[in-house]
Design a protein around this nucleic acid. Structure first.
Lengths: 207, 207, 207, 207
DNA sequence: CATGAATGAGCGTTCATTCAT
DNA sequence: AATGAATGAACGCTCATTCAT
């Protein structure tokens, strides 16, 4: 029974994907713990148990690593929620469940949420603005819009501007997560239910 | 060949308030254009047309300058909105007007909004977290809560959790501003009206 | 009886000597407390209750102030000792008394001793060396040499190289003061007596 | 016109010890020439023909570099002297030889002596005082005391307070070195012999 | 003459990035 | 390919010195 862990000698050769994941995981931890400015590539590489110089083999530069980390983290979290949803249920129920799942993340994925927030608010775009956040939220918006439209078609939701509602919905979730982050004494599920009440109220009100 | 900075004229002696404002204005511009990290005190001083060392006569350090800039900017913007509101009107009308005023800021105070966002998400608090953002949002929340309660007392608003609504309301505004920021083709007033419809729908729906 | 302290208004005009003494006294305190590097002209001027800009009216620059402070302090301390000595007594007694007086300074003029030491070991001479220390010790050496010669002429001291003895004598005192500085539990008088025994032993031994 | 520093060749990779020695050697030169304050890490690195940032790979900060330089220099010089002594000879002869060796250093290790003096008088200890100097002199004192006691036991030295004698002995050497430093026209050996006469006179005199 | 706001060279230090091994 | 020593630009900050008032 020689199932010992790999000898961990120097110069272990890992696949590119594995290396990238290692580095992005370390990035999440460092950024969550020390902030965007405080996360240095030296510390990230050390934490990922990877030679410093290798960072530049797998990422173009620091911004690239940060952007990739943000994208991967966002995608992972979105997939987690979507996978856990039963899309066969009525739309209002889906929304209620989605909000609860989102709220639960503050407990299960606090580091990812904090890191994501920090990266998104610091990543400079080509023109100095924040490009990434846009594109990714755009994808979320579209998913939500189609969900809303389905509810409207099914008659479970009233008439409203789906795009503005999607932006508002996403903004409400972000605000919820930020609020729960600084109010750890609150029960995420309770807040999620309260928010569902509000949002569904808005969605059902006939314009 | 000689890319020297243009020589400044003779020393100008300004009052403390004027200097601080000068420096904070330059800070807003730099942070808006280059982000929190990218805004260095050297560039800020240069932009303010002032010797680098002067920064430390009026601010303890970079964080102090950033915090002061955030506070002053936030206060200015809040005052602008509050002053423009007619608090004697019915609450729903006040909310509609407030949303329009907030939306209009993306045109009149884009730099301030962007800088504020970046600073608030980067300012390290005493324990390494973000303290300021909390306190300031807390102040906003309380103001909004009392407005909501007034509406509930007057019968123009239904029954809902005022705190969650305040957080959601503020989050919706932030999301709106971010969305308008990257969609300059949109008319802020239209978005504001659409958002008002949604939020007032949520507020009027009887739970 | 209106003997109140001077009103201390701004722009008090003092004589040059008074100003210089104020500044040098403050220099002694700052250097003693914060070291040579830590003593900034701003702090010195503040402590002397003098406008910062005035420093350059009374001293050419920082080094000039330091050098002047060292000279004045050294001269004052030397005069204090010499004045307290009864030069009419036999030479060995004079030496014994001088050593006791020197040792006592660690209690009465600690700041001056510390500041003097720090300045003398930091003052850069024209060529980067330490010039001042030389010239001033030279004066001391001459005084001591003539005292030693008198003792030799009177027969109370043996034969020895007066210059080397003077250097050794001064070096012994400096070592004593440094040792007493870091051994505050010792009684200065006891050390002085012990040192007198040693030095007089050396002086009386017939070569 | 183009006063650029001469371009260094390709990067050389050195062992840790070699790099540290390289940097400490440059430190000795800079401190000797420009004093403690004047010796900046920029100049030290340049003199060592090394990138500025390398200093922080091998030393924690400026004080660490200075302290390490002082310790290494002191140890080297002490070893040089001790190795050259024949400890089997009678104590008075050892002392005579030690003084000659010490005096000779002003010719062979002038920079080291000057740098050591400057560093020891400026190094801030944990409490802001000078700690290192104490500990190192303490070590010297103990060595000298035991030598003196051996001489007393052997009958070649008289009775005296060994500690005060040690402090005086060390102080005499420091004074000698400082004196020889500013009197290059003197023959170190002659001074050393003169000082030996004086100190041995003191040590042999029966109290 | 006195004041202290203004200046700017220079410091110690960090860290993304490069490259000899 | 992998390593981490080496590099150097840039940063936040200090402080001796100048000068408009």
């Amino acid at each position: 029974m020689d199932a010992q862990p790999p000898p961990r000698g120097p110069r272990q050769r890992l696949g590119e994907d594995q290396r990238r994941k290692q580095l992005m995981a370390a990035t999440v931890l460092e950024v969550a713990e020390r902030g965007y400015e405080g996360a240095t590539l030296t510390k990230i590489a050390t934490r990922a148990d990877v030679a410093k110089g290798l960072v530049w083999r797998y990422f173009a530069d620091k911004d690239d690593l940060m952007e990739a980390t943000a994208k991967a983290t966002l995608e992972t979290m979105r997939a987690t929620i979507v996978d856990a949803l039963d899309l066969g249920r009525p739309v209002p129920e889906i929304i209620r469940a989605a909000l609860r799942l989102a709220a639960a993340q503050i407990r299960t994925h606090r580091n990812e949420l904090v890191a994501l927030d920090r990266i998104l608010h610091n990543l400079p775009g080509p023109d100095g603005g924040e490009r990434v956040i846009t594109d990714f939220y755009e994808e979320s918006y579209r998913g939500q819009e189609s969900l809303f439209r389905r509810g409207q078609a099914e008659g479970s939701l009233g008439d409203f501007d789906a795009r503005i509602m999607a932006v508002t919905y996403q903004g409400s979730i972000d605000a919820m997560l930020a609020y729960l982050e600084i109010h750890p004494e609150l029960e995420p599920q309770d807040y999620a239910d309260g928010l569902a009440e509000i949002l569904l109220g808005a969605m059902k009100a006939t314009a």
